[in-house]
Design a protein around this nucleic acid. Sequence first.
DNA 1: GCAAAAGTGTAGCAATGGCTACAGTTCTGT
DNA 2: ACAGAACTGTAGCCATTGCTACACTTTTGC
Lengths: 141, 141
Amino acid sequence: MASRKKRSNPHQRTRNDHATETAEDYVEAVSDIIDEKGTCRVVDLAGHFGVSHVTVSRIVGRLKNEGLLLTEPYRPITLTASGKRMARASRKRHEIVYEFLLSLGIDEQTAAVDSEGIEHHVSEATLKAMKRHLESTGAHR
Amino acid sequence: MASRKKRSNPHQRTRNDHATETAEDYVEAVSDIIDEKGTCRVVDLAGHFGVSHVTVSRIVGRLKNEGLLLTEPYRPITLTASGKRMARASRKRHEIVYEFLLSLGIDEQTAAVDSEGIEHHVSEATLKAMKRHLESTGAHR
DNA sequence: GCAAAAGTGTAGCAATGGCTACAGTTCTGT
DNA sequence: ACAGAACTGTAGCCATTGCTACACTTTTGC
């Protein structure tokens, strides 16, 4: 997870960070959609993210080049082993943040929105602290 | 704060969100740098964010157009009333998130890095919950 | 089986934020 | 005062992620 490495300048967030966030969001969505409805199509992702199918199509192409997912023209999208690994890690992080926000007394709707924004900016140390908090308050599922 | 409005699709984060995050980061930095050393120059911001002066120059131009800051060619950068307001709000949010992370037992270095990433993705409701937590644990300064 | 609907791809545009290279301005020190 | 250092601006490149418009493929329904 290159984007979560320590930085000499903590403010330094490059284009690559955004690209990695996008990748994580997409593989996680692909995984979720496949779990829900069997297959994942471009149109499903477009609906999920609220963007046009064109944007999805281009990003899917990039992630395919990066070896995270597989697809052929006009065909459904599946994850590679690497993509599945990333999706699992991303989903886990997402869940911890979400549960943590709930444990603070935040409503589900808000927790869902905020956890999506936050999950990409949480270090391993902070994630561990959240887990600790969940266990200590017995609020984890 | 347009970017923190409710969204019909919670996944929907547009280019504007990123632009707003940049604006918040910049006005906050300008404010901090002026407090620290009296004036804020392009080169200060470039150092602060670890990017080239060219990138800073372009973004400063945009923020000037948006009425957040003032500057003339080869001159220092100051904040407008609107920019000061945004800087104050942003700094306050930043501080709450930072203190909250510390209260979870996270080290200062990590809290500094993570709070910068997280602050833009925290809703008012979550911010209130963090404040509540700080007060209940007596961990606020 | 074939027309319409749904889905996907491509072309081409915009805004943002990275960069290097080079040119111009301001400040500094002697 | 003036040369060199420091700072700033501009030109022009790239990648990412938005979009509309249009073309093409696949699926659906009769």
